[in-house]
Amino acid sequence: PVAVGCVAGDAESYILFCDFFDRVIEAYHEQKITSQTPESDLNYDNLKGGDDLDRSYAVRCEVSVVRGIEDFCFPTHCSRGERRRLLTLARQALQQLEQELAGRLLLLTDSSQEQQSELNLKAPTSFQLRIGVARDWPDARAVWVSENRSLLVWVNIDEHLRLVSMREDANVAEAFQCICISLQKLEKYYRGLRHPFIWKQQLGWVTSSPANVGTGLRISVLIKLQHLPTHKHLKDVLKRLRINMDKTDSPELYNISNMATFGFTEVALTQLVVDGVKLLTIMEKRLEGNLSIDELVPAQK
């Protein structure tokens, strides 16, 4: 499946309706849910490469992670009062983060369309309107922006929290490091506020969408490709690398991202995308020289 067609109203939904949600999660992520606690690895030093992608092909990258906050319904079901309380908590946590990383909080009610566009924020989609995420929009929605623009923190936009690090030089290693450091600090601050991030024993971190359980991590790299998108082996290559390739508005630019967020550690997911982009780049170069890529098709990851 390319998308999940359901959302949870709160964290307990994953327990109360486990017969339903477990099947959705297993089908989407292609991983079995077991009694074992999912492993986590936010040690960015364990990532190999990521700062060495070929800039002739890799244009830009983005690493993001989502988190739900304990004791609150997810955005799909939370009340206006809960949403405003979540914003208050975010202010308190981000003020602590500002002691080490300067930044400012921008309320959507006080921001212009131009400012929102600069932050890559878009108006709610019809899907978000249908599932309730955009209820009372833009009340209690905000974006925290670091002074050096290395980090954005979305508050109540699509999930309780979304951390985003974008790099115009496609340095995945730097973006991943930024996310890991900031996420661990915010986790500590929220725990101090007695509202930790939501963790479920067999699923890991959970938010409203089953597509994000486990790590909540998304790594995407914008890459230039001309020959590979039409190659007969492409579908096999993507499936075996466990990565997605999506079209963009430009006919030569494609977005490469991780297929799943569950069943792998954060470092392992990032490594899948980094290695995948490198292999796709090598294949594209071979095709440019009218050479075969049959021997480059990888085994299943």
Results as ranks from 00 to 15, higher is better:
G289Y: 12
D136F: 05
K32H: 13
S35R: 11
G5Q: 11
V7R: 10
K48M: 10
V143N: 05
Y57L: 12
N148F: 02
A27D: 14
L253V: 13
L121C: 08
V277K: 00
D294K: 11
P75H: 02
Q36L: 13
R194W: 08
D139T: 07
K48T: 06
V297I: 15
H29P: 10
R130W: 04
L47R: 01
T248P: 05
E284L: 08
D45Q: 10
G216Q: 10
E266R: 05
Q95G: 12
T270N: 03
E114A: 14
T270W: 08
A58D: 01
A93P: 11
S209C: 15
S112K: 07
A211Y: 04
S208E: 10
L94A: 02
Q271D: 05
G204F: 02
V297R: 04
R240E: 09
K285T: 13
A142D: 02
R149H: 15
D19S: 06
V297Q: 01
R104G: 12
V213P: 07
E26I: 08
V273E: 01
I15E: 03
N212I: 08
F197V: 06
F264D: 12
D169P: 05
T281F: 02
H29A: 07
N43S: 00
I181Y: 03
R85H: 11
R60S: 15
S64H: 09
L53D: 01
T88L: 11
L119A: 09
A140I: 00
L291K: 14
D139V: 09
L291Q: 15
F176M: 02
Y14W: 00
F74T: 00
S112T: 15
L238G: 11
E187G: 06
F17E: 09
T109S: 10
T37Q: 13
E284Y: 09
I157Q: 11
E288Q: 06
